[in-house]
Design a protein around this nucleic acid. Structure first.
Lengths: 135, 135
DNA sequence: CCTATAGTTGACGTATACGTCAATAGCGAC
DNA sequence: GTCGCTATTGACGTATACGTCAACTATAGG
């Protein structure tokens, strides 16, 4: 079974984040690696949480928001119906935000496509002129 | 023709950003409203640039990156073939980043769906138990 | 012309997300 | 054990993105 533990350097290299950042994320409650003495040992669960965190960070969520999102996903005690309903609400909330970001991306990609098309058209015109003049 | 000019307050309310933020964005070169005396007058072009900027900001781009992106889209002088090629390159660059963010969103939405499904299943189980006990 | 309201420019403060450095502690190989 | 490398804990520094005054200035309405 995959129960390997990783050093901070290994995790650092794998995810391309500095050890400082990893300790900072721990400080903010995003991850909580075990310790052998004082040395941090990252489990696969820690790595999963980190992966989720980095996704959130890339999407512009604050570390605080990332912690919220990760906590939702992490196999926590499901609790009672009240807790579960709250969880569902939060999920819907975050989903709405994600869908908004998605629309932002689609809009930007659209504009980008138009600009590129105009750009390529310009290039073609220039190229045509050069050929005419060159010949 | 729509050639209306907007005050900083109007723009502030329309886009739900503070005047301070608008001046800050101007400082960073994101927008450059005209002046009547010392008073800023925002044109439709300014509002378009602002709209693009806010999209970028929501997606986690820095103001500096937003400026780059906006400048690509804004009707600037197309310049020569060299400029146009550079423009196309930058577009491809930004598109790659956007597509990465898009994958991040899809992955997150996926995980979110799973968690929600598990959550709803739990709720159903609880509900079933309650009905049995209640009857 | 005068007042009220909106707008302007500094200047400084603040929250977030780390970078950087120093001092020390621990672990692995020999 | 001890040499060397890795890790840890402060503590302070820094970049970004604004918030928050303060002190004027401008402009529109009566």
């Amino acid at each position: 079974m995959p129960d390997h533990r990783y050093s901070i350097q290994e995790v650092s290299r794998e995810f391309d984040v500095t050890p400082r950042a990893l300790r900072f994320y721990e400080d903010k409650g995003l991850i909580a690696p075990a310790r052998r003495g004082t040395t941090r040992l990252y489990s696969d669960r820690d790595r999963t949480r980190l992966r989720l965190a980095l996704r959130g960070i890339r999407l512009g969520f604050s570390l605080e928001e990332c912690r919220e999102i990760i906590d939702l996903y992490d196999p926590q005690q499901p609790g009672g119906a009240r807790q579960l309903l709250r969880l569902c609400d939060k999920i819907r909330e975050h989903r709405a935000e994600l869908l908004h970001k998605l629309r932002d991306i689609e809009a930007t990609l659209g504009t980008m496509g138009e600009v590129e098309a105009r750009c390529l058209a310009e290039l073609l015109k220039i190229d045509a002129n050069v050929r005419k003049a060159g010949h």
